[in-house]
């Protein structure tokens, strides 16, 4: 059996800003997968992405992309990485043609035909200044750029935030299409868990600069569960199973880390599957 290759590997990575610390983060993203990078605003997602791209210097730990340390040749490694940011980053006066002229002199593998093909597909006028584009159009332009130099890894920082559901779905379709190729991988940072639930294979969840969970999304959803019960029943549930309890005057909602075990142990309580959002909210509440 072929060994699973990791496209991104972080080992005990630390970055201390004084008022915020990314603390001892370790996770990996397997080749060919879509990894959802979840966390609240300010959880450290962008800092982690900047560390992976070697835009900021880490204080400790090791980061490897395509099996190579980012310290040595991050610039060369970026030839195979497409990056999409929450904000467009291109100058407002630039149009598609200007961007094409610039990019073909930056990326060795820049494919002009592919780029204009994407612009056409996304209905983006190539002669119109990108400053006049809507937010959805600006995101599509960034995606067109990221996909036009035959990148093997897409790193996206909140690409779907602030977009309407139709455009978001369109984007997800594009991402799905990208990972059809076996060696294509996506690291998708978002706080919109609904999107990640639709597309992600792997999930990395960070909160307050600390890693909360990392692993296969389906396994995570399969394992976690929610029990909604009376306050008195909540006390009966074994502590190692409980991630977080939310007690209100109406009753209790408990996130458990092994719903099949809970169903066996407490057959009289109804155990429901938990969504990524519910899992995230309970973990965040527990950490507070």
């Amino acid at each position: 059996m072929d060994e699973i290759k990791n496209v991104i590997e972080l080992e005990k990575v630390t970055k201390d800003y004084g008022d915020f610390k990314l603390d001892n983060i370790s996770f990996s993203v397997p080749e060919g997968s879509v990894c959802g990078f979840i966390g609240q605003n300010g959880a450290g997602k962008t800092t982690t992405i900047n560390l992976i791209l070697d835009v900021i210097k880490r204080d400790a730990g090791e980061i490897r992309v395509f099996g190579e340390s980012v310290d040595k040749n991050s610039a060369d490694l970026r030839e195979d990485i497409g990056v999409v940011f929450a904000e467009m980053g291109f100058h407002e006066f630039m149009n598609g043609k200007d961007i094409d002229i610039m990019m073909k002199n930056i990326y060795k593998n820049w494919d002009e035909e592919t780029f204009f093909g994407y612009l056409k597909r996304f209905s983006l006028p190539s002669k119109k200044k990108c400053g006049t584009f809507s937010r959805g159009m600006q995101m599509k332009l960034q995606i067109a750029v990221a996909l036009s130099h035959h990148a093997k890894l897409l790193i996206m920082d909140e690409p779907t935030s602030g977009l309407d559901p139709i455009v978001r779905n369109e984007m997800l379709d594009i991402f799905r299409e990208f990972v059809i190729e076996e060696d294509h991988t996506i690291l998708l940072s978002s706080h919109i868990t609904e999107d990640l639930e639709k597309i992600a294979d792997e999930v990395v969840f960070i909160n307050g600069g600390k890693l909360v969970i990392a692993g296969n999304k389906d396994e995570l959803l399969e394992r976690h569960g929610l029990i909604k019960c009376r306050k008195e029943d909540a006390e009966k549930i074994s502590a190692p199973l409980v991630v977080h309890k939310e007690i209100s005057s109406l009753g209790a909602e408990i996130l458990i880390n092994d719903r099949h075990a809970a169903a066996r142990l407490y057959p009289d309580l109804l155990t429901e599957p938990a969504s990524l959002e519910q899992i995230m909210l309970h973990y965040v509440s527990e950490m507070r």
Partner: peptide, 18 residues
């Protein structure tokens, strides 16, 4: 000024250019 206003430094940092 134009680069700063557009946030181009982030985009440039993702380019394969040392």
């Amino acid at each position: 000024t134009a680069d700063g206003k557009a946030g181009f430094d982030k985009v440039a940092a993702s380019f394969p250019i040392p």
